[in-house]
């Protein structure tokens, strides 16, 4: 099948899945007594209805794109890097740690250092999962889940312990950073151009690595057949650890950006579950890089727009989560139906 044909097939599948999940969500809304069209309208207007909202949406889009494109690197060698959540958190921890010696502010160079520290933190956490997988034979799902818990525990310990606010014992977060260490947005636009550029760079980097380098091809080969990869001298274990570490670095960058660009401090929910959401995005995109930015955008719109549901309709905002989940289920369903249909056709 040609590249264009495969691409439009994934796109068609995606469209079918979107349609299916819209139908399902509409039913759900009808059951809960909300007017479906109006609800959708409010949801989407909440994400793209104004320039400011668009800014917010892009601010969510950035970590999602960073994490989703990072996951492409680990999906290529067939890894389920569910530990990406923890890698985001470690990025946030490292960035916060890097900035703690500067309570009175510092130069933008320090800020850049914090981002690099975040990348190192994420890469370090992913490296552990990778080594557990290749040396310890611990499946990356279990290793990753375990490390996620450890990362959350570490955050809680830091917030409640060594990094607590003076005189306060609260889970709410650390002391806010000095404003000179905030990655600031353009005026009236809660979005930093630096983050945006970094996210775009990340996805182009990933596309370049996977499409145009032998390293990327090796990753795919490892994913296809680790044993053959070994025979071809592709060093599958080394590739796995490298892919994990690079993925972790990007996730860590997302975490660092959450700290310096969004919350300006470390808090327990710093990852905002973007890692898990990115896993959904990547699956929904059928691991195709060019579908990642639009799907991330769609998810970001849902995330940001969902605030409007309780604000305007007194509906629970978890509806947007339901839509995201149903979408992913739908894409699997569409995939499954397609296979069934082909099987039927072949048997006839």
């Amino acid at each position: 099948m040609s590249y264009a044909a495969r691409f439009s097939l994934s796109l068609g599948r995606l469209a079918a899945a979107v349609f299916l999940s819209l139908v399902f969500t509409t039913l759900l809304l009808l059951v809960s007594g909300a007017p479906p069209l109006h609800t959708f309208a409010i949801l989407f207007a909440g994400g793209i209805g104004s320039v400011a909202k668009l800014g917010q949406t892009i601010a969510v889009w950035i970590p999602l794109v960073l994490c989703s494109s990072a996951l492409l690197l680990t999906f290529a060698p067939g890894l389920w890097n569910i530990g990406i959540e923890g890698q985001i958190i470690l990025g946030a921890i490292f960035a916060t740690g890097f900035l703690r010696p500067f309570p009175a502010g510092a130069s933008p160079l320090v800020l850049a250092g914090a981002l690099i520290a975040g990348m190192i933190g994420g890469a370090f956490w992913a490296y552990i999962a990778g080594v557990l997988r290749t040396w310890g034979r611990v499946h990356e799902i279990f290793g990753g889940l375990g490390l996620n818990f450890v990362a959350l525990g570490l955050t809680l310990w830091l917030i409640f312990g060594p990094w607590r606010r003076p005189g306060v014992a609260s889970m709410s977060g650390t002391e806010p950073l000095h404003p000179s260490l905030w990655l600031k947005g353009i005026k009236g636009f809660s979005l930093s151009p630096v983050s945006l550029v970094l996210a775009l760079l990340a996805i182009f980097l990933v596309i370049y690595l996977l499409r145009s380098t032998r390293w990327g091809l090796s990753l795919k080969a490892v994913g296809q057949n680790p044993e053959a990869a070994l025979l071809y001298g592709l060093k599958p274990n080394k590739r796995i650890v490298e892919a994990m570490a690079l993925c972790g670095a990007l996730a860590g960058l997302a975490g660092a950006l959450q700290v310096v660009g969004v919350y300006h401090r470390l808090l327990p929910a710093i990852s905002s579950n973007y890692g898990y959401t990115a896993l959904l995005v990547t699956m929904l995109a059928s691991f195709r890089p060019n579908l990642i930015p639009p799907i991330c955008f769609f998810f970001a719109v849902l995330n940001v727009g969902s605030i409007q549901l309780p604000l305007q309709l007194k509906l629970d905002s978890s509806l947007s989560g339901v839509i995201q989940g149903v979408l992913v289920l739908s894409i699997f369903l569409v995939h499954g139906l397609e296979e069934r249909w082909q099987l039927l056709r072949r048997q006839k």
Binding site: Q56, S190, Y263, L267, A269, Y274, N303, I307, P310, L311
Partner: peptide
């Protein structure tokens, strides 16, 4: 009104964002 305004319940939401929204 908006309830559950905390990072655990509404991941990714920051207070200035909600305020922007209410003001608008």
């Amino acid at each position: 009104y908006l309830d559950k305004v905390n990072p655990a319940d509404r991941p990714g939401l920051t207070l200035p964002q909600v305020v922007d929204d209410l003001v608008s």
